[in-house]
Design a protein around this nucleic acid. Structure first.
Lengths: 145, 145
DNA sequence: ATGTATGCAAAGAGTTTGCAAATGT
DNA sequence: ACATTTGCAAACTCTTTGCATACAT
């Protein structure tokens, strides 16, 4: 099992847009920078608030539209954790799962080859092939409370 | 790994309400029977439509309210699969995970002790204890398409 | 110059809630 | 009898969309 995340450069996401023939607008530049630099998993509203600080003209619609475009290109991932709104993170190529701290909402990433393999086996036994999957652990720090 | 579900009797859910000092109304009786007898994972609207057939006076609010009450008592589970609305199933005591057929939306239940154990290990390594978790495989039948 | 992206306001899906009337115990 | 539950409509949260204007290329 492994945990942690590598910071992707800001340019990665802009490159995705450029290569798709899409435009790098002032708003998108701001949003992408936040997404690439945050290292966390903000929802649309959080993104909007952070972006507004740098450019008060940005609208929530643009945040959503930008997320949609990036998601379609596979440049970001959209997660819908229990209950809450969708949260976004830059796709770092390697699939990983999430542990959500129930007190703080903080998200810890991890990856387990063994679990990945087991999932494949299970799907195969049931006669299926996996297209995608989602493993989320909701927990609290040990020795708290 | 194991798959399948056992049918719980209709009385189970009514008993939960009774023991909680809540009332068994005509509407609840209908909704609970559908839930217990369906063997599937209907969303609120599906539940509402099926219930309406037996009792056209039932409202969607009542479906939602009934789900909430049962969920609070741990008698049912609420799942929010990718994108869609919440879907409900009677809690059969033993935790299980889900494989969702992407073509049909059908849900197959399974349980893997090994995965359960691995999850615990991972959480422990990260310094957490698991409160709940969610493992969903999205796939398509092999040899199709 | 041209098509793309934007902000705004309105609409949409899913779910919850306030209220007065109905109903289970 | 009396608290609980109901149906209805309105409110709410999150997200998408139509449209006229602004902007990147």
């Amino acid at each position: 099992m492994s945990a942690g995340r590598e910071q992707g450069g800001t340019g990665d996401l802009e490159a995705v847009l450029k290569e798709a023939g899409l435009r790098i607008t002032r708003q998108r530049r701001v949003i992408l920078a936040i997404l690439a630099g945050g290292g966390d998993h903000p929802d649309a509203l959080a993104l909007f608030r952070r972006a507004s600080r740098q450019d008060p003209s940005i609208s929530l619609s643009t945040v959503y539209r930008t997320m949609k475009v990036l998601e379609e290109r596979g440049a970001i991932q959209r997660h819908t954790f229990e209950g809450g709104p969708a949260r976004f993170e830059p796709a770092d190529g390697v699939h990983h799962d999430h542990l959500i701290d129930l007190e703080t909402g903080k998200v810890i990433e991890f990856r387990s080859e063994r679990i990945e393999r087991l999932q494949e086996e299970i799907a195969a036994e049931l006669g299926y092939e996996i297209v995608s999957h989602r493993l989320e652990l909701y927990g609290r720090r040990r020795g708290e409370d």
